[in-house]
Amino acid sequence: MLRLEQEDFTCGRSRYLDFLKEAAEPTAKIFVKISLEHTESVFWAQIDTGSAWSVLDPLVAKRHGYLDLDGERIGLDTRLGRKSGILARLPVRFLADDGVPFDTEGTFFICPDWPPGRTFLGYSGLLASMRFALDPQANHFYFGP
């Protein structure tokens, strides 16, 4: 994987998508492959370095029982308006096509009336605690501790 001055910089690499068919906005985004709760299913999640917190699809949250978590309740201003929900710490796995997968935890905003199908990975509660890099020529997402 990527190395910096003789040391590993990242441990894994996966192919990312820069758009999904149904994405509401036409501009390029970065969708990476993750799994939650270490289940054997892959979901796409959008990298959002402009957001402090990750946001979890509410139907995925319901599936894992996260809607009933007793977390800190907050209100956040989002592009869909003011939303109320809880912050919870959840395990996230970055799946690798090459190298080694990466397990970590992130703080997710869980909001029952967030639209389904949209999971975001935010900066302060997740991405800021790991290393990542992009190769936009090849659509490669590099990640690691």
Partner: peptide, 20 residues
């Protein structure tokens, strides 16, 4: 808990993913 900075770990036991 929610404000903690977590250091993740490599997990070589997980199978690699593939071209989607």
């Amino acid at each position: 808990r929610v404000l903690a900075k977590t250091k993740g770990r490599r997990n070589p036991e997980v199978a690699l993913d593939f071209d989607r």
